[in-house]
């Protein structure tokens, strides 16, 4: 039970994700970029929150680093690489494409492909004559069925 409370305390974390206004970058476009980057980075001490959503001490520090680097004119990739070098794949909320994550990234294509094959297979197997549209008699029957309780 204590664990639950602990877990929920972490939920409560974001309630305090109110930080120092001075933390923000004066340039609105840069601040926007920093936020987008921050949402790609996982707060390591929270559970599943980005550093933008958490006010854990470490998240604050990481936000500050992101902003410093953005202000220093580094590219998005450079900023992400900087933290990736320190905290590994775990810090990236968008997993990098590697041999280990290939299956993950391929899921949409695989699922859609497998489903399409299934549908095609079913259709091929049932190469029966294409059905005709409902005859008026059938339509009447259908309407009647819909009416009868």
């Amino acid at each position: 039970m204590r664990r639950l409370l602990l877990a929920l305390l972490l939920v409560a974390g974001p309630a305090f994700a109110l930080s120092d206004p001075a933390e923000q970058l004066p340039d609105a476009a840069q601040e926007q970029r920093a936020r987008v980057l921050g949402r790609e980075l996982r707060c390591l001490v929270c559970q599943n929150q980005s550093i933008e959503d958490s006010d854990a001490e470490l998240a604050r520090d990481l936000r500050r680093i992101v902003r410093e680097q953005v202000a220093a004119g580094r590219s998005d990739t450079q900023v992400l690489d900087y933290l990736h070098a320190r905290y590994g794949d775990f810090v990236l909320l968008r997993p990098p494409f590697t041999a280990g994550t290939a299956l993950l990234w391929a899921t949409p294509v695989l699922a859609l492909g497998a489903g399409a094959l299934l549908v095609l297979g079913l259709r091929r197997r049932r190469a029966a004559p294409v059905p005709q549209a409902l005859t008026p008699a059938e339509q009447a029957r259908l309407a009647e069925l819909d009416r009868t309780p």
């Binding site: 390591l44 001490v45 470490l58 520090d61 990481l62 680093i65 320190r86 905290y87 590994g88």
Partner: peptide, 12 residues
């Protein structure tokens, strides 16, 4: 400031 710790990858 905790900055060197971040370079080490410390998270707590």
């Amino acid at each position: 400031p905790g900055r060197v710790a971040i370079d080490w990858g410390v998270y707590g």
